[in-house]
Amino acid sequence: MATACFVGNPYFSYFHSSDSKSRINFLGCLQGQQRLYLLNDVAIDYMKNQVDVSKKWVTALSECGEKRFSTEEEWNNFLNSIGCTALQQRRWATEGVLKAALILNHRLENLVIHSDGARQFDTAFQHSLCWYHAGRNMDKLIPANDLERAARDTVQNQYWCLYDDIEAYQKNPTDKEKQKLYQDFDRWVTQRVNYPALQSELGKLMVVREELLLVLEYPWLPLHNNLRERQIREYVKRRKVSGGTRSKLGRKCRDTFASLKKTCKQHGVSFAKYLRDRLTGVNMIPRLGHLILKASGYQETVLANGI
């Protein structure tokens, strides 16, 4: 069965099914129909920031100057022509050129991806993590005795107190409160507990500290992915009941109509009336793109998840 990617925010919903959950697929999804592969300084900088990228290929690609490719085939032929055949190196290079193209075509320098933590959604742009998903592993712990149970309950209670404090900060953000919350989180996540499994979970949360606390820099970011959960629920249920589609065209039609229906609902537009308006050629209902831009004020934030 094909996997589906949901991209959206409070102003639009977009579903895209494919056979891959890779970061390359996600970046291509963000590009929409205007696929472009752009080799420039942005792409090179992205590759330099990836620890697994060979300096040999960073240098080789840098010396090629700025190049544009309109299809995946053209880009792959170019990589073949310079002798870059290692799959991992090609993957990093492809992610870099897709990111560069997104910034050129859509001016997404300040884009923040807010997700449930799936790795295909991070590194290309700033990444914000859902607090609900980040805290789920603590819920799954099974204490062996009363002391471990008490430790888990105390740590979880502190976690959600931090959540409440950050939620209050979003309504009235100040530099003083921001610094206090950074310090509170650091004290919480670095505490020592006599419960190895819980200590391990705290260590994992320390690794994603910047993603959890990005909301302190951008108070308008959501703390959770509930919007995505609500938007995607009907889509998943219908796919399970129907067993999927029989062709790629059917899959594309399903994704398109699901995207239109959810976006219409977000703007208080009847989906049935919207379809009738377009099919009859009346065109009295504004284009959804215009409604999105008007309502969002060009806010560059998306929620993302793969299913």
Rank of each mutant, 00 (worst) to 15 (best):
Ala258Gln: 04
Gln266Pro: 05
Tyr235Trp: 04
Lys261Gly: 11
Arg251Lys: 11
Gly250Ala: 01
Lys262Asp: 07
Cys253Asn: 12
Leu249Gln: 13
Gly243Ser: 13
Gly250His: 04
Lys240Tyr: 00
Arg254Cys: 08
Thr263Glu: 06
Thr263Asn: 10
Val241Lys: 13
Tyr235Asp: 07
Arg238Pro: 03
Ser242Pro: 03
Gly243Cys: 10
Cys264Arg: 04
Val241Met: 11
Thr256Arg: 09
Leu249Ile: 15
Lys252Gln: 11
Thr263Phe: 14
Gln266Thr: 10
Cys253Lys: 08
Arg246His: 09
Lys262Glu: 13
Arg239Phe: 02
Lys248Cys: 10
Thr263Pro: 06
Arg238Leu: 01
Asp255His: 07
Lys265Leu: 09
Val241Arg: 12
Ala258Asn: 05
Lys262Thr: 12
Ala258Leu: 00
Lys265Glu: 14
Arg254Ala: 08
Lys265Asp: 09
Cys264Phe: 04
Phe257Gly: 04
Lys261Arg: 15
Glu234Gly: 14
Thr263His: 10
Gly244Lys: 05
Tyr235Cys: 09
Ser247Asn: 09
Arg246Gly: 12
Leu249Met: 13
Arg246Asn: 13
Thr263Cys: 14
Lys240Asn: 01
Arg238Trp: 03
Ser247Ala: 05
Arg239Ile: 01
Ser242Glu: 08
Gly250Lys: 04
Asp255Phe: 01
Ser247Tyr: 07
Ser247Val: 06
Lys237Val: 15
Ser242His: 10
Cys264Pro: 02
Arg239Cys: 02
Ala258Val: 00
Cys264Glu: 02
Ser247Gln: 05
Asp255Pro: 07
Arg238Phe: 01
Ser259Leu: 01
Ser259Trp: 00
Phe257Ala: 03
Cys264Ala: 07
Ser247Asp: 01
Arg251Thr: 03
Val236Ala: 11
Cys264Gly: 09
Lys252Gly: 09
Arg251Met: 05
Gln266Tyr: 15
Arg238Asn: 13
Thr256Pro: 00
Val241Thr: 13
Phe257Asp: 10
Ser259Ile: 01
Lys252Val: 05
Arg246Asp: 02
Val241Phe: 11
Lys262Tyr: 02
Arg251Tyr: 01
Arg239Leu: 02
Leu260Ala: 11
Gly244Met: 05
Gly250Val: 00
Arg254Tyr: 15
Val241Cys: 07
Gly250Glu: 00
Ser247His: 07
Lys265Trp: 07
Cys264Leu: 03
Thr256Phe: 12
Gly243Arg: 12
Leu249Thr: 14
Gly243Glu: 06
Tyr235Ser: 06
Tyr235Gly: 08
Lys240Ile: 00
Lys237Glu: 14
Gln266Lys: 15
Glu234Ala: 14
Lys262Asn: 12
Val241Glu: 08
Glu234Arg: 03
Cys264Asn: 06
Thr245Gln: 07
Asp255Cys: 04
Ala258Glu: 07
Thr245Ala: 01
Tyr235Thr: 04
Gly244Ala: 11
Phe257Lys: 03
Arg254Lys: 12
Ser242Trp: 06
Ser247Lys: 09
Gly243Lys: 12
Leu260Gln: 14
Cys253Arg: 14
Tyr235Glu: 08
Ala258Ile: 00
Thr263Ser: 14
Thr263Asp: 06
Lys261Glu: 15
Cys264Val: 03
Leu249Gly: 08
Ser259Gln: 04
Val236Lys: 10
Gly244Leu: 06
Thr245Pro: 00
Thr263Gln: 09
Arg254Met: 11
Lys248Met: 12
Leu260Asp: 06
Arg238Lys: 15
Asp255Met: 03
Thr245Ser: 05
Lys261Ala: 11
Ser247Cys: 04
Leu249Asn: 10
Gly243Asn: 13
Thr263Ile: 14
Lys248Asn: 10
Lys248Ile: 15
Thr263Lys: 13
